[in-house]
């Protein structure tokens, strides 16, 4: 096997072990921190201890069982595709199956478009360094960095409300993912989804584009003065072709690691946006499970996040190897 594949496989195994350890630790933290008996304590009359125990045992969260045993059971069941029951007595895995698509749609569309916009703005800023457009992008990205994700979401909601009021029709909708009363034909359904997704996706795009454009601009500035750009120009390539074929490609190499490393910020950001825009995704599940003292749901949704990060790290290793010819040899 060639050394690059061996290297990538070793990295992936390392990430897998880290993910398993981190998820088990998350389960331990959730078990110690949350109090599953809480929801019975405020009931009048309090249910008999035997039926409480029966439920706690069914969820696998009975405090009378040693924590290490509960964690081991959770970990073993994990490999059978069983993440336990929610406090609503539904399989956690089923909840995840329903919600994962919601989060992934927001996250993937937002981060991919954000990366594309960020790379383009970064290259543009580097080529037109110190020009008005470059400085405008810089100032705007500073403001975006200083604005918390949830504030940006709410600000866009206020703007959209004013915009709708101005036009007198509801053009942008921003609560939930779709409206129940949308017309049944395909076109209205699609438009309804897009108009709901517009604002939260826009926030993620802004968030990603702001940080990617700064890094891409720096990486590009490193490349612009390089000899191989001059060589390409003297071979007769136009400025644009030399920059794109030789400049952007090289400047993208350090970006592949940065994509993975900033992905965590976007995952946290999209979880916050789900709450702000009332989307029923994984971020909402995480936050609700803490409020409801739901150990299995919290552990399950944390595992989901850890797997997302695992995938993005693996992808960035592969991307790095694919982009950098020195790694390929």
């Amino acid at each position: 096997m060639d050394p690059v594949t061996v290297y990538i496989v070793r990295r992936i195994i390392n990430y897998l072990i880290l993910t398993a350890v981190a998820s088990s630790l998350a389960y331990v933290l959730a078990s110690v921190g949350l109090n599953p008996v809480w929801q019975f304590e405020n009931r009048h009359p309090r249910p008999p201890q035997s039926s409480i125990d029966q439920l706690l045992d069914a969820w696998g969260v009975n405090p009378s069982v040693p924590l290490i045993e509960r964690t081991w059971t959770w970990f073993v069941n994990l490999f059978h595709g069983d993440l336990g029951l929610t406090v609503g007595n539904q399989p956690v895995i089923q909840q995840i199956a329903v919600r994962a698509g919601v989060s992934l749609q927001l996250l993937l569309v937002g981060s991919i478009l954000g990366a594309i916009v960020g790379v383009i703005l970064g290259v543009w800023g580097a080529v037109r360094q110190y020009k008005l457009s470059d400085q405008a992008v810089t100032v705007i990205s500073y403001i975006i960095f200083a604005t918390p994700t949830f504030v940006m979401g709410i600000l866009l909601m206020i703007l959209a409300t004013n915009f709708n009021n101005l036009l007198g029709v509801q053009v942008i909708t921003f609560s939930g993912q779709y409206s129940a009363n949308a017309a049944p034909d395909l076109w209205s359904q699609v438009w309804d989804r897009i108009s709901h997704a517009l604002l939260p996706t826009l926030v993620l795009i802004l968030l990603g584009a702001a940080s990617y454009s700064r890094y891409q601009r720096n990486a590009m500035l490193d490349v612009l003065g390089a000899d191989y750009i001059r060589t390409a120009r003297s071979k007769g390539r136009t400025r644009g072709a030399a920059l794109v074929r030789h400049g952007v490609r090289i400047a993208l190499i350090p970006m592949s690691t940065f994509f993975a490393y900033s992905f965590g910020t976007l995952v946290a950001g999209s979880a916050m946006l789900e709450i702000v825009f009332s989307w029923h995704g994984m971020g909402e599940m995480t936050i609700q499970s803490v409020q409801q003292n739901d150990i299995n749901s919290l552990a399950g949704s944390t595992l989901f996040v850890a797997i997302l990060i695992l995938c993005s790290s693996t992808l960035s290793e592969i991307l790095y190897a694919a982009l950098d010819p020195r790694v390929r040899r």
Partner: peptide, 9 residues
């Protein structure tokens, strides 16, 4: 290990 989960989580 600490970077497996975003610090918010």
């Amino acid at each position: 290990l600490l970077l497996v989960l975003p610090s918010f989580f």
